[in-house]
């Protein structure tokens, strides 16, 4: 008896590539929908705190500081504050979203589906990048009320912000993989990310530091991001060479991506 060809379900009829693309798009939309749904927690606080930074450090204190790194102090702090908001939001978006997904066990709905781990990772990272860019755009608009600026190198500015958002989204992902409780996703931002950002040349030029602390600062990756981003916007040479920043951040992106993928493939924290 000849075997009949079974009726293919919609899922069976898809090519792997097309299915992977749809799955990626679904995760990204889900992630964007999540941070938009809780906008009072995700979008408003960074806007308010950055306006306060512009007012206090830029307007009130900045007017007495004068020039910094060849720029008015208000202009000097704008790139760092945009970068700071992108870093913290990209990181916390993926950290809290992936941890919640683990905590509520809804990660299982992705693990049982035919989604390659790389697509799951890319989806979460894209969600983090989307929130980072969204908040970055809000802060940039706020900055426009305090200082006039045009972008010197659009490609470098966008490239740097994208790479930074990707890197810290991956950092948030790794944090969430190892997190066992909600407290665990606030330890790294509080004890590592915030100090590195504040000491990353957001508010001062490394030229102001004694030699020892300037040398120490060169081990802080955020120095490279802020400096190159500032160069991309104003075209003023920063604390470190741009090519070195791009190479360093690119290298870290590759390293963090590899670590994240290995963790997912091993099922660390998500598969028994």
């Amino acid at each position: 008896m000849a075997e009949s060809t079974p009726h293919l379900s919609p899922a069976e009829a898809k090519s792997t590539l097309s299915a992977d693309w749809v799955a990626f798009r679904t995760i990204v939309i889900k992630e964007i929908r999540r941070f938009l749904r809780i906008w009072p927690q995700t979008l408003v606080p960074p806007a308010i705190s950055m306006v306060l930074y512009f007012l206090i450090f830029g307007t009130f204190i900045g007017s007495r500081v004068g020039q910094m790194g060849g720029l008015d102090y208000m202009a000097f702090i704008v790139p760092g504050l945009i970068m700071m908001s992108v870093i913290t939001n990209a990181y916390s978006n993926v950290a809290s979203s992936f941890y919640s997904t683990k905590f509520q066990r809804s990660i299982e709905t992705m693990l049982v589906a035919p989604i390659p781990n790389g697509v799951i990772l890319a989806g979460f990272v894209a969600g983090g990048v989307a929130r980072g860019l969204c908040v970055g755009a809000i802060v940039t608009i706020m900055a426009g009320f305090f200082v006039d600026f045009t972008i010197h190198s659009f490609a470098l500015t966008v490239g740097m912000i994208l790479m930074t958002a990707v890197l810290f989204s991956l950092g948030g992902f790794i944090n969430a993989v190892f997190a066992d409780k909600f407290d665990d996703i606030s330890i790294i931002p509080a004890f590592v990310l915030t100090p590195l950002t504040y000491l990353g040349g957001v508010f001062y030029s490394l030229d102001l530091l004694p030699d020892f602390w300037r040398t120490v600062s060169y081990f802080n990756p955020i120095v490279y991001m802020v400096s190159s981003f500032r160069y991309g916007i104003f075209g003023v040479s920063g604390d470190v060479p741009v090519y070195l920043s791009v190479a360093a951040i690119g290298g870290f992106v590759v390293l963090f991506w590899t670590i994240s993928l290995v963790l997912l493939n091993r099922g660390t924290g998500i598969r028994a």
Partner: peptide
């Protein structure tokens, strides 16, 4: 055990799962 986000809408939960399987 229930393994969906309780804050998501019922329709979204099912549609998102369809997307995970590559359905348009």
């Amino acid at each position: 055990e229930f393994n969906f986000s309780i804050f998501e809408k019922v329709g979204d939960i099912v549609e998102v799962q369809a997307g995970f399987y590559g359905l348009s």
